[in-house]
Amino acid sequence: MKHLVAVYGTLKSGYSNHQLLDKACYIGSDRLTGVTLYNLGPYPGALPKPSDGVWVEVYAVDDQLLAMLDRLEDYDPRAEKTSLYLRKKVQTRHGQAWVYLYNRPVRSGQRIHSGNW
């Protein structure tokens, strides 16, 4: 496993896309205070704004699984301006991890103050 990924939405345990992480190694949880969580309807999105914290699960993944996550999150490193999410490094208590940040505007009323979706 080469990469750490911090997930906060449908990839978390018990949610609809978690099966993609079945072969990943669960490292632990954390609360990220450098991002703010928003309710986008069927899934959440995080923006790089300070908050009381967003609860994440951290997994170790290989290159192939990271590429699958990129496709799920509609992230294309060659076309970041049109990607739905951007993949950025954040510091977690488990080390540097990738997190997918929403790449569209949101309304402030959509904010999830608890940091848990």
Score class of each variant (00 low, 15 high):
residue 24 A to P: 15
residue 69 L to P: 05
residue 115 G to D: 07
residue 99 V to R: 02
residue 94 H to Q: 04
residue 83 S to E: 03
residue 86 L to R: 15
residue 79 A to F: 12
residue 55 W to V: 14
residue 85 Y to G: 14
residue 104 R to P: 07
residue 35 V to K: 06
residue 116 N to P: 04
residue 32 L to V: 15
residue 65 L to V: 02
residue 50 P to W: 02
residue 67 A to E: 06
residue 70 D to T: 03
residue 66 L to R: 10
residue 85 Y to T: 02
residue 39 N to W: 06
residue 24 A to H: 05
residue 11 L to R: 10
residue 1 M to R: 12
residue 45 G to A: 08
residue 7 V to P: 04
residue 112 I to Y: 01
residue 105 P to Q: 11
residue 82 T to V: 14
residue 22 D to E: 15
residue 19 Q to W: 11
residue 66 L to P: 07
residue 51 S to H: 06
residue 64 Q to H: 10
residue 13 S to Y: 08
residue 17 N to M: 03
residue 61 V to S: 08
residue 80 E to F: 00
residue 91 Q to E: 14
residue 46 A to M: 06
residue 30 D to P: 11
residue 59 Y to I: 02
residue 37 L to S: 07
residue 92 T to K: 07
residue 22 D to G: 07
residue 8 Y to R: 08
residue 67 A to F: 00
residue 100 Y to M: 11
residue 27 I to H: 10
residue 54 V to Y: 04
residue 20 L to K: 14
residue 99 V to H: 01
residue 41 G to V: 10
residue 63 D to V: 01
residue 16 S to Q: 12
residue 43 Y to Q: 09
residue 71 R to K: 14
residue 73 E to H: 06
residue 4 L to Q: 15
residue 77 P to E: 00
residue 18 H to W: 01
residue 91 Q to G: 03
residue 14 G to E: 09
residue 112 I to W: 09
residue 117 W to M: 03
residue 74 D to Y: 01
residue 66 L to Q: 04
residue 39 N to E: 08
residue 75 Y to D: 00
residue 2 K to Y: 04
residue 76 D to R: 04
residue 29 S to K: 13
residue 24 A to I: 06
residue 46 A to S: 08
residue 26 Y to E: 13
residue 27 I to L: 12
residue 67 A to P: 05
residue 79 A to N: 15
residue 25 C to L: 15
residue 39 N to D: 15
